[in-house]
Amino acid sequence: MMALEGTRGEPIVVVEGLHKSYGNLHVLKGVSMTVVRGEVVVLIGPSGSGKSTFLRCLNRLIDPEKGRIVVAGHEMTNARTDLPKARRQIGLVSQHFNLYPHMTVLQNVMEGPVTVLKLPRDEARQRAHELLSRVGLDDKVASYPRQLSGGQQQRVAIARALAMDPAVMLFDEPTSALDPELTGEVLDVMKKLADDGMTMLVVSHEMHFASRVADRVAMFDDGIIVEEGPTEQIFSRAKEERTRRFLSQLLSWETEDGALTSNPDDGRAGAGSIN
């Protein structure tokens, strides 16, 4: 596994006092968070609570008004930071996959390494093949995104992000646009990634995934983190009433076999969808 040299436990994402508004809508009201290398943090919270906006501030797809963000040694909130260069270190996988429809699966994965990292084509191609076989799609290299199922598209999107050899991976509701029977294959890939030691921030309401994979859960509500802590503690002994209420709403959707696959956001991203 690449990108994981460095000591586990050293802070790799540091966020201090993040604020963001859209007109009168105050989406983030002072969010701080530290994530250490190798940690998996799941962000939960109701629709519009600021989770997606927070995630997109981390790689500066959204410009925060106030606050400081450091990711993998890049001070993202500094005007002099070379954003394209810093973003190579931060993979983003979003709800709608956003694969390039005019490129094949292989080209999708090769595009970043060739255009941005200036890797020789042969090397980029070989690496793309490796990554696609890691997500179980080496037989689809010549397909176009529209020929794939949603689950397959999302796995390609993960491979595309990994091709940049990122230090951190951000997932914004990676399974919420998928049919229930397709979420498993994506979550499996994500779990493997976590097992390999990737640092991950995941906006998701897949409780089953969170309880098995996450080191920590952060509960967002109304633009702040109302509570965060070890997964087990948040799920079984949340201190905040808001967290308990939110979790019980999620649980009331629990399917019979115990797998939690439904999403109270009804497939819509939170405040991030404003952009």
């Binding site: 810093a86 979003s94 595309r160 940049m164």
Partner: peptide
């Protein structure tokens, strides 16, 4: 062209120019 396409390009470290020429314009 959906805004997610631009987002995807920027997220892999492309510059605005690269995103426009390689991702947005062909679509």
């Amino acid at each position: 062209v959906p805004s997610g396409q631009r987002e995807a390009g920027l997220s892999t470290g492309m510059t605005n120019r690269q995103v426009f020429l390689r991702v947005v314009l062909p679509q």
